[in-house]
Amino acid sequence: MPRSASAAGRTGASDVSLTVLPTPLGDLRLAATADALVYCGFQPLAEVRARLARTGLREAGQDGQDGGGARRAVLDEACAQLDAYLTGRLRSFGLPLDLCLATPFSRETVSSLEAFVPYGSTATYGALARALDRPRAARAVGTALGANPLCVVLPCHRIVGSTGTLTGYAGGVDAKKYLLALEAGGHQRVGG
């Protein structure tokens, strides 16, 4: 189970390093501090940088002082685990995570995902809302999942519409299909 660090105690600006990981789903952008992965998603780099800046995080050179090696180590481990996951060799991530890019409700929602909906299964937005003790908040849950700063790692792709339909995903519905097929033991080409 990934360990999550709270963003509540963060003060001042922190340096992050960024990388792009080519995957069968398309390019994943990753950002890490010296302590944890803070972003894994599909947004263009300019949008990722803007999102980071809004929370006081700033991009630093990957080989710079003040934790450049530690940031690189977090990114390297994240890339290795994502590669293992996307090739069916890993079912659960063991990365240090920091949800500083998430709102409090989004943080609560995405933090519950791995325990609520295990590898290879799905649940509905409504069921997740009920599990969060907010039975009428299915739409809010959908919005929170749409803002998940740690896609794939925190498995929002496992949440489906009330009829089992594959609705919205940051990487697109084809990426969601791919991830669900992978977890079900099948292999599917993105777009196919």
Rank of each mutant, 00 (worst) to 15 (best):
4 S>I: 15
8 A>W: 13
11 T>G: 05
13 A>D: 09
17 S>W: 01
20 V>M: 00
20 V>N: 00
20 V>L: 02
21 L>W: 01
22 P>H: 05
24 P>G: 11
24 P>A: 09
25 L>S: 03
28 L>T: 09
30 L>V: 11
31 A>T: 14
37 L>N: 06
40 C>V: 13
40 C>L: 03
43 Q>S: 06
45 L>P: 00
47 E>Y: 08
50 A>H: 13
51 R>Q: 13
54 R>N: 15
57 L>G: 05
58 R>F: 03
58 R>I: 09
58 R>H: 10
59 E>Q: 12
60 A>C: 10
63 D>H: 09
64 G>D: 14
72 R>Y: 06
72 R>K: 13
82 L>N: 05
92 S>K: 12
94 G>K: 11
95 L>W: 08
96 P>A: 01
97 L>W: 04
102 A>Q: 08
107 R>W: 12
112 S>L: 15
115 A>L: 09
118 P>D: 11
119 Y>R: 12
120 G>S: 03
120 G>D: 02
122 T>A: 11
124 T>D: 04
126 G>N: 01
128 L>T: 04
130 R>N: 04
135 P>C: 08
136 R>L: 11
136 R>C: 00
142 G>F: 00
144 A>F: 13
146 G>Q: 06
149 P>H: 07
153 V>I: 15
169 Y>L: 01
171 G>E: 10
177 K>P: 00
178 Y>C: 04
179 L>Q: 07
181 A>Q: 10
184 A>Q: 14
185 G>K: 08
185 G>D: 08
187 H>C: 06
